[in-house]
């Protein structure tokens, strides 16, 4: 199986650790993943903001970069949903050979938890993470991809991990791409309620499959100095007894984990 990683522009730039985690988990399971350097962005921001024409070259470059692979794994629910659900819409409008290209490539694109559970058929990835975790099903994973219980099945199989319920889990966190800045007050109000729910859960870690949502939630947590950290599913699944809570974190991950370092110099969670 020729396997490619679509890191997403957001993770590439801000959360390289999550990409490394994906590589490590897959390698542990005996799979090498290629990183096509020509990849850039799925075009979601342009598409969702009304700049549909600007999304066309991005969709085209996506098809070019990933043509020929048997499977493409993506550590982001919303980018996966963009590719699988909406690239065809962009392509139809652009015409030419693009629709055919999208029809070939898009069905082979999997969100990380889908890839592990559906393609590789594993739920126990050999991870160890001795902390309590609440899982936030991000909207596009939940309602567009319908990943269902795949992420929680993966989490349940992690040794040492206690999965706790997140109250009102299916409510949107309020990120929503440019919504977060165009409708800042509403976005922050929604995010504030998500932070409260996370605190109510009593978990040490809030986990999700989208770093974009986690940046929003984590950004609120950091500003409020609320004592809970946020982590991408891949970053939890990458942890093992030998390498508990991988170090060194890039600075990006450290803040996304909700700890302004000055408040909590040595997060107890990491030990």
């Amino acid at each position: 199986m020729r396997l490619a990683l679509f890191i997403t522009c957001f993770n590439d730039t801000l959360f390289p650790e999550t990409g490394k985690s994906v590589v490590r988990v897959l390698r542990r399971l005996g799979h090498e993943v290629e990183f096509p350097y020509d990849q850039v962005c799925c075009g979601q921001m342009h598409f969702n903001s009304g700049y549909r024409e600007d999304a066309v070259p991005l969709v085209r470059s996506f098809v070019d970069a990933f043509e020929g692979y048997d499977a493409v794994v993506v550590p982001s629910g919303s980018c996966t949903a963009m590719v699988r659900e909406y690239h065809a819409v962009v392509a139809r409008q652009a015409g030419g050979t693009l629709p055919a290209g999208v029809a070939r490539v898009a069905p082979k694109v999997y969100e990380f938890s889908e890839f592990l559970v559906d393609v590789l058929g594993v739920t126990d990835v050999g991870a160890y993470f001795p902390h309590s975790v609440a899982y936030h099903p991000t909207c596009h994973s939940l309602r567009l991809l319908r990943v269902g219980d795949r992420p929680t099945r993966l989490l349940r199989a992690v040794r040492g991990l206690t999965l706790v319920d997140l109250p009102r889990a299916d409510e949107c966190c309020g990120f929503g791409g440019t919504f977060a800045v165009k409708n800042v007050d509403t976005s922050v109000a929604m995010g504030g309620d998500k932070v409260s729910a996370a605190l109510e859960s009593g978990a040490q870690v809030l986990c999700a499959g989208d770093n974009s949502c986690l940046t929003h939630i984590g950004g609120l947590i950091s500003r409020q100095h609320a004592g809970i950290r946020v982590l991408h599913l891949a970053d939890i699944l990458a942890c093992t007894e030998a390498l508990p809570d991988l170090q060194p974190y890039g600075p990006g991950l450290d803040i996304a984990s909700g700890f302004a370092a000055e408040q909590t110099p040595a997060p107890e969670v990491t030990r």
Binding site: I7, N11, P16, G19, K20, V188, R223, I255
Partner: peptide, 24 residues
């Protein structure tokens, strides 16, 4: 603008020194 809107109530991670593609 979007920048001040984001930072009114939220922090953000600083971009890491090395992107994923450079690391890879």
């Amino acid at each position: 603008g979007p920048v001040s809107a984001w930072f009114a109530d939220r922090d953000a991670p600083a971009p890491p020194a090395e992107s994923f593609r450079s690391w890879y």
